[in-house]
């Protein structure tokens, strides 16, 4: 069930413009195509150091069926590449009055199955 919230407070100005600013890796329309990875729940990171990037996990594909497999900490998630029923635009608030389309998302990797814990008999530092 989707639940709706009023968005009036998020778009406060009388008029906001969306412009197409093209970036590299473009689709035929001149807008780049990005991807979404959809997971159940949310990822919690234990992180001491607040600067620099944080590794989340390793993503592979099975060559047999092209299905993605994601290793997240001590869990393995099996997923599927799915075409979005309706594509999505990634829009970015430029300044106070305008939005630009950064990218289009047409496909996602959907991980909806329960994560399988990794049972390791070797002591590994992961």
């Amino acid at each position: 069930m989707n639940h709706y919230i009023d968005v009036r407070t998020q778009i406060p100005r009388a008029r906001q413009t969306i412009n197409n600013n093209n970036i590299k890796t473009e689709t035929e329309g001149g807008v780049p195509e990005w991807a979404i990875i959809e997971l159940q729940g949310l990822i919690q990171m234990k992180k001491e150091d607040q600067s620099g990037p944080t590794v989340v996990g390793d993503l592979h594909y099975f060559s047999r069926n092209r299905h993605p497999v994601l290793i997240l900490g001590h869990h393995v998630l099996n997923g599927k590449e799915v075409k979005l029923e309706q594509p999505m635009a990634v829009i970015e608030k430029d300044d106070t009055t305008s939005y630009k389309v950064k990218a289009i998302v047409k496909k996602k990797l959907l991980f909806k199955s329960r994560p399988k814990p990794i049972i390791s008999n070797v002591s590994e530092k992961v």
């Binding site: 890796t25 979404i36 959809e38 997971l39 590449e81 496909k107 996602k108 990797l109």
Partner: peptide
């Protein structure tokens, strides 16, 4: 669900 947005992800 969480929707993680990843530019230039390889399918």
């Amino acid at each position: 669900n969480s929707l993680l947005l990843v530019p230039e992800l390889l399918f």
